[in-house]
Amino acid sequence: MSAPVVELVGLTRTFPGPPPVHALDGVDLVVRAGEYVSVVGPSGSGKSTLLHVLGLLDRPTGGDYLLDGVPTSTTSERHRARLRGGRIGFVFQQFHLLPHRSVLENVLLATLYSGVPRAERVDRARAALERVGLGHRVDAGPTTLSGGERQRVAVARAVVTGPSLLLADEPTGNLDSVSSAAVMDLFDELHASGLTLVVITHDPVVSARAQRRVRISDGLLAEL
């Protein structure tokens, strides 16, 4: 069995009230390298909160989170930023592409903060775009792309730095079924090449593509 990339032990995240919201209420989860995990659950169940904690964008209020075996509760904000830049890639429902920058520049953005050698940045960004099938649109503005294409740009941006963990929050939430399928194919491919994926989704079709599925409801996690 491969080493755990993510290890959650009794993890809680409570938003101070009134009334306090227990978005995550004692979650235990181990995600091993190369796993493809989908997280499903009703709205408001704490899926996004879980993803933000996993992505070091939010700190848990209790329990432990080990990333690559290293506890993250005591790490400095700077170090967390470096881990986000180097180890983790994000894909969001709303794409989060900068509208005034070209596709290539949007992908390059991720290389800025993660220490990719300057000389390699453009080549890597082009290669990543090639990989998601958008090598011909590098100079386009994101606003001229379809939703599916935008999400593929976001995927290219997430993987350009060579992360070990890809986190996606409803990556197909704004896409039609054809575009969804394209993004899901991409995820399959990334998974096949060894990337660890945690994908949050409402869509049973998307969830079905994952090798392992977990369900979260009322801040509690259960394997499916």
Partner: peptide, 28 residues
Amino acid sequence: VLELAETDPPPPPRRRRWRGRPWRRGDG
């Protein structure tokens, strides 16, 4: 980063390896 994975696990052809490593001494 985009290495052709020719070792285990036996991948389908043309599948590439995405796993990379963080940049410890690259350009910040």
